[in-house]
Structures are given as structure tokens and as C-alpha cells.
Design a protein around this nucleic acid. Structure first.
Lengths: 275, 275
DNA sequence: ACTTGACTATACAGTTACTGTATAGTTTAT
DNA sequence: ATAAACTATACAGTAACTGTATAGTCAAGT
């Protein structure tokens, strides 16, 4: 049994046994991470079964994203205590990575769902819709500041939502003061917002787009030329004796990922809360 | 508003805005992935807010592990349909990665728990223990074949358990025919096995180490010199009128990750089912 | 003994997605 | 006018392999 553990395998054989590339074994040899049990005088490397545990450990630590250099250091002075600490740290790291991946997965799933569910929209239609409350996160206020500042705040908001994993894959929206809008002032964006999944987002300070009756219209065209559409909605409201209250919500319909070609082009849903 | 989108940022400013390294922007320029809106005649690159959506998409696809070359190709002929397919494929990939990571996390957690829970063992103690059934997976039979073949099967078993994520981080064990053992034949390992988490393992064909009364002894020393310990247990059984039945289980106590120094050294628990 | 095919080793280059650094030129603030 | 702060380019380096060309070695068959 003893000499059996010593049975010699060439690089190719040992590599095949473990399903790795033999150049990897040579590489590990060259960086002194995992060396053959013996090198014969013709230069041929020979590995043994006895080395398998060692090799397995390397493979595991590799999977745990530990750099080869760290693995080497660890194996050089490896105590049960140190091993425990190492595993614990890597496990913490894995946890982070898992959280990130699960979030990403959710984001992508939501984007896909939205793409698949996209209905045919009559962009000239104006309607009144009874809507449930929807969870959103909002940015800092953007009213009464320069467009430059608005953009800065928007970018910061987007970056923050991304990093804090508040973002759930829904497109960005903007809010306006609905009462000002009714007075014909379309210039003041009060803030921007994201829809979020009430149950799954890691958002901390989120609110609702309130439940209620909304006047809803659609728009497609250049980002920079939306005012006539807003005017049309306002006219409609005034012509039908409707009173705006609270906020107007400009929500992108197209997902960012899909609408890359022309960055001025947008399709948006405009909903304004009615009294 | 129009000229506002055109507002120019130098490489450094744009990089700071998005929290990336400015050399990265230069790199993206050099590989024609993301180029500045304008390059002035002094060679300075200028980026604009209008490019931000494009850049965001690149960042997202990057997070989804899509290589830069693929991102480039995709953005070159990007339709909603293609985007959907792409996102779907990457999401499938993420799912794989998530499954792998969650398994790894479980493996590491189990290893850590075992290390922390390791009791002080009196290795000379022999006792009779009432044990519950424990979930295990077993390898192909290894009896009546050469030691070489046994090792091959063992390695294959380990590799399989690893790749199918059946392995849950518990050390390898070996089984022997308990009746043959009582007759003094310690040579025949019937197969090897892993303990698994009944609820969490992805194992397909698993069985139980049966509930019942076990004669339990311990061993520490060379792997190749365990026979005297087995003899001692057998003698004890014969001296106390105990009859072996079913299988004997040789279970490693040390985790592979922690016991790397000397690959002959092992600490094992030997439990033999009693009639 | 000789040839053939299958292996081995080394050296060198290439991969991906950056990042660092040295050098030289440009802009901006004082 | 000058210094500080920026810009650009060229070149090299990173990690963890992987591919390839070349040359040497081994085992089997004739």
C-alpha cells in the first residue's frame, strides 16, 4: 500500500486524472506552488497519488478566489487556526459576491420581463387610469437649480442606486410639480426616481407613487422636445375640467440597454395625479 | 437643454463622474468600444452627458461578465430582440454561477463548523454508541480489485462529487464489510463515501448509513498502518460477544484543507454496525 | 537496430481588462 | 511669466493560465 501511494504519473497522466491542463501543472511547478514528487534526470516530472490531497486543497482555495500567491503563502505555514480564519474570510467574500450576483440576476430578470411584456402603445392616446401605489426611490430635489446641477444630481442618484443595489432594473423617471405644470410651467423637474421591487430591493429610504386617478399620456421623440406633449396633456385637462395635484411622473418606457443608438430619442409615459 | 447634453468633459472629469479610472476610458477608446464625443486638435478627448447611457450599458454588460469584444459587437448591431436574447443568455450564465457559489459557500461553512466543533477525542477509547441514520453518497464498489483501481475509483468519485456538487465539505470515508472484518480480513474496502446534507446536497443517488448500535473506536497515525487498530476493535468485539453486521465505516476526522503537511497522517473514527 | 508515433521539456508569445509610469506637451491659476 | 495641474502617448506589467514551435525522449512494432 505504501509504494502504491508512490506510484508515478507523468504530467500528462496526472493532469488527465484531475481534469486540468498539463501546462497548468508546469506553471504551478514554475511558480513553486505545486511541484512534482520527483524530477528524473531526463527532466521528466513525476507526480504521485500522495500529492492529491495537496492538489485538491489548491483547487478548492482557487475556487474560493484566493490568488495563487496567497495559496502558496498559506500552505507554507498552514495551521488549523489559520486555515479556519482563511476559510472564514473567503466565506465572507463569497457572501458579498453572492449578494451582488443575486441582485444582478434580479435586475436582468426585470429588464427581460419588461421587454417581453411591452405592449403596443398608441402614443397619441390620452386616458384616465386608476392606479395602485407603486414603490419608488427618489433623488435629492432638483428644482430651482441649473440644468448642470440637475444632471450631476441625476448621475449621482443613478450611481448610488447602482452601488447600494437599490436599482432593480427599471428605467429612470422624472417628477414634476403637477400644479405648476397645469399653469404651463414645464421647466421644473422636482427630482428623478426609480421604480423598485418593494420586497426585493435593498433600498432604505423609499416611498410610494401614490394610488389614485392619473391622467396618462405618451410621448415618443427627442428628449429635448417634450414640452408640446406636456402642453397637450395640460390642455386636455383644462378642457375636461381636471385638476392636477401632487406630482407628474415622466417614466421611460424603453430600457436603457435597448435604446442605445440615439441618446436623444425617448419613449415615455406621462402620468399626472388628479384631484 | 440641447447644448447642455453637449457639455464637454475631459477624460479625467468624465472618469471621476463615473468613478472609473481615466486610463480605462483611454483603453476603451483605443479598442474602439467607447470613444469620446470629440477629440480636439490638441489631441484632448472630450466626453458629454449624452454619452452616459451608452457608458452605463457597457458597465452593466461588463458586470454580466460579457467580454468587451462581445459588448462591442452587440452594440454595433443592437436590436431589442438581440438585447433580449443577450440578457437572457447572460442571465442563464449568472444562474449557473450563483448555483456554484451557493454550493461553495455551503461547503466552506460546513468545513468551518466542523473545525470549530471538533471535540477533544480520547483516541484509545472504545465505546458503543446508538446512532441515527446519516445521509451519505457512496462510490462504485471497490472490492476485489487492485489497489490501483481502488484509487482510480476513489479519485473519480471525488471528482464527480465535486462537479455534481454532491460534495458538501465533509471528509471522505471508506466502508468495509463488517462480517469479513470480524473474521480478521481488513483488506477489502467495499467502497468510499461522503456524508452529505440530506436537504441541501445536489446528490441524486444517496443512501443512509443506517441507524443502530455501533462499536466505535478511533485511530491516529499513518494511513498505511491502520490494521492493528482494526484488530484491536475486532478483539474487543469478540471479547465482549458482539457481532458485526453490515458495514464498518472509516471516517476521516481531519478536514483535508487542514491536514496538508503529511499526506500519510490521518485521524479517523471507526464505527462498526452491531447486530 | 531502426523507425514511427506518442509523448516529454523548454522558451516564447498571447490572452483579457485593465493599471502604472515615464516623458512630453498643454492649459489654467496666480 | 511661471508653476501647478492637467493632458496625451508609449511602454511595460499584472494574474493565471494557454498555445505553439522546437527539440529531446520513450515504447512498440518490425
Amino acid at each position: 500500500m505504501n509504494d502504491f501511494f508512490q506510484k508515478e504519473f507523468t504530467t500528462g497522466q496526472f493532469a488527465a486524472l484531475y481534469g486540468v491542463n498539463k501546462r497548468t501543472l508546469m506553471y504551478y511547478d514554475s511558480i513553486d506552488l505545486f511541484k512534482p514528487a520527483i524530477v528524473k534526470k531526463n527532466g521528466y516530472r513525476y507526480y504521485t497519488y500522495g500529492q492529491s490531497v495537496f492538489f485538491d486543497v489548491i483547487q478548492l482555495l482557487r475556487k474560493l478566489r484566493l490568488p495563487l500567491e496567497e495559496i502558496k503563502k498559506h500552505l507554507a505555514h498552514c495551521t488549523p487556526q489559520k486555515t479556519r480564519t482563511l476559510l472564514y474570510n473567503q466565506s465572507q467574500m463569497l457572501e458579498q459576491e453572492l449578494a451582488e450576483l443575486m441582485w444582478l440576476q434580479k435586475v436582468v430578470q426585470n429588464k427581460i420581463s419588461r421587454m417581453e411584456a411591452k405592449p403596443e402603445i398608441d402614443y397619441s392616446k390620452i386616458e384616465i387610469i386608476e392606479s395602485k401605489a407603486q414603490a419608488i426611490v427618489t433623488s435629492e430635489p432638483t428644482s430651482k437649480i441649473s440644468m448642470e446641477q440637475v444632471m450631476k444630481i441625476t448621475l449621482k442618484f443613478m450611481r448610488d442606486c447602482y452601488h447600494t443595489r437599490t436599482y432593480n432594473g427599471y428605467p429612470l423617471g422624472y417628477m414634476m410639480d403637477a400644479e405648476k405644470m397645469q399653469q404651463g410651467d414645464f421647466s421644473q423637474l422636482t427630482n428623478c426616481f426609480y421604480h423598485i421591487d418593494e420586497n426585493h430591493s435593498e433600498a432604505v429610504n423609499w416611498t410610494y407613487k401614490p394610488a389614485g386617478r392619473y391622467l396618462v399620456g405618451y410621448y415618443k421623440g427627442s428628449w429635448t422636445n417634450m414640452d408640446p406633449a406636456l402642453q397637450q396633456l395640460t390642455d386636455y385637462a383644462n378642457g375636461h375640467g381636471l385638476t392636477f395635484t401632487g406630482n407628474a411622473y415622466l417614466e421611460n418606457i424603453l430600457d436603457d440597454t435597448a435604446a442605445v443608438e440615439d441618446y436623444y430619442y425617448c419613449e415615455a409615459k406621462i402620468s399626472i395625479l388628479l384631484k
